[in-house]
């Protein structure tokens, strides 16, 4: 890619993010009451996903060799990652099975832009997404304040890197399963609700001291361990974690698998078409 082409692509991404921010802002200002209800319930939802484990860690002063602040840091990391997914990949970009299962991919296919560019920008919803970062942010701040821990710029750089890997892992897992909707639109339309819920539940489990079977399962079949536990073990230096490069490597592998699955599914879709269409959720 030449520099000119790269600059043009980046400019277009910027314009697309700006136009989607504006649409999101307009949606928010359409009804302030509705916005606040959305923002509050989304935030509660995000907080509720980790609340059980927070309470468990509080009741038992930590779990599996992790202290209470360490567990809360891990939960905060997971909740913040989820908030970022909401912020960047809303409008069923993350829950891609819905778009595919409802036959809505046609709308994206008739846009004169690469699919990656559409999916990278269409889900950006700063107005509705920002509040969902609050629970994760609050837990991170609280836990850092309660740990004897020095966080310098290098540490924050690693934090950002691991956060990026965590987000990539969540999206990859969603798309890997979501691609099944190409083959079974009705049965798999809501599969990303199930995978998202599962990831939400399982990412909160500290894997230190777990039986190898459970631990391996949560690092392979459902790679929830790479969303919060492995990055946090590396960031906090908790013994019993994985090699620090394993989380980024796993994210890269899962992203590759997800892209492969999506492209294979799309090739199938282009032969079989979609016999199903529902406008539900489309641009609403």
């Amino acid at each position: 890619m030449t520099v000119v082409k790269l600059r043009k692509t980046l400019r277009q991404i910027g314009r697309l993010l700006a136009v989607h921010s504006m649409l999101d802002l307009m949606l928010m200002t359409r009804s302030t009451a509705e916005f606040w209800i959305w923002a509050i319930t989304d935030t509660i939802m995000n907080a509720a996903a980790v609340a059980g484990m927070v309470m468990l860690a509080t009741r038992f002063h930590g779990i599996g060799g992790w202290s209470q602040p360490q567990i809360i840091f891990m939960l905060g990391f997971g909740a913040f990652s989820k908030g970022m997914v909401n912020l960047l990949f809303g409008y069923n970009v993350s829950a891609i099975s819905r778009r595919i299962g409802r036959g809505q991919l046609d709308h994206t296919l008739i846009q004169p832009q690469p699919l990656w560019m559409a999916f990278l920008t269409e889900g950006f919803n700063p107005a509705f997404g920002l509040p969902t970062l609050v629970p994760g942010g609050a837990l991170l701040v609280w836990s850092l304040a309660h740990m004897q821990f020095h966080s310098g710029p290098a540490w924050w750089l690693r934090f950002v890197g691991y956060m990026f890997c965590s987000i990539a892992m969540v999206i990859a897992f969603q798309w890997l399963w979501g691609s099944t909707a190409f083959y079974a639109p009705r049965a798999a339309e809501e599969i990303n609700s199930a995978t998202s819920e599962l990831m939400e539940d399982l990412k909160t489990f500290p894997l230190s001291g777990r039986s190898p079977a459970v631990r391996d399962m949560l690092l392979t079949a459902v790679p929830a361990g790479f969303v919060a536990w492995a990055p946090c073990a590396a960031l906090l230096g908790v013994p019993g974690g994985l090699h620090p490069m394993l989380a980024p490597a796993a994210s890269a592998i899962f992203c590759g698998l997800a892209l492969l699955a999506f492209h294979r599914g799309l090739a199938y879709y282009q032969i079989s078409g979609s016999q199903r269409y529902s406008d539900f959720g489309h641009r609403r």
């Binding site: 399963w177 099944t180 079974a184 639109p185 009705r186 049965a187 599969i191």
Partner: peptide, 10 residues
């Protein structure tokens, strides 16, 4: 739900 093969078992 079960009409499109075994995928619903996932």
């Amino acid at each position: 739900i079960s009409g499109e093969g075994a995928l619903f078992l996932v």
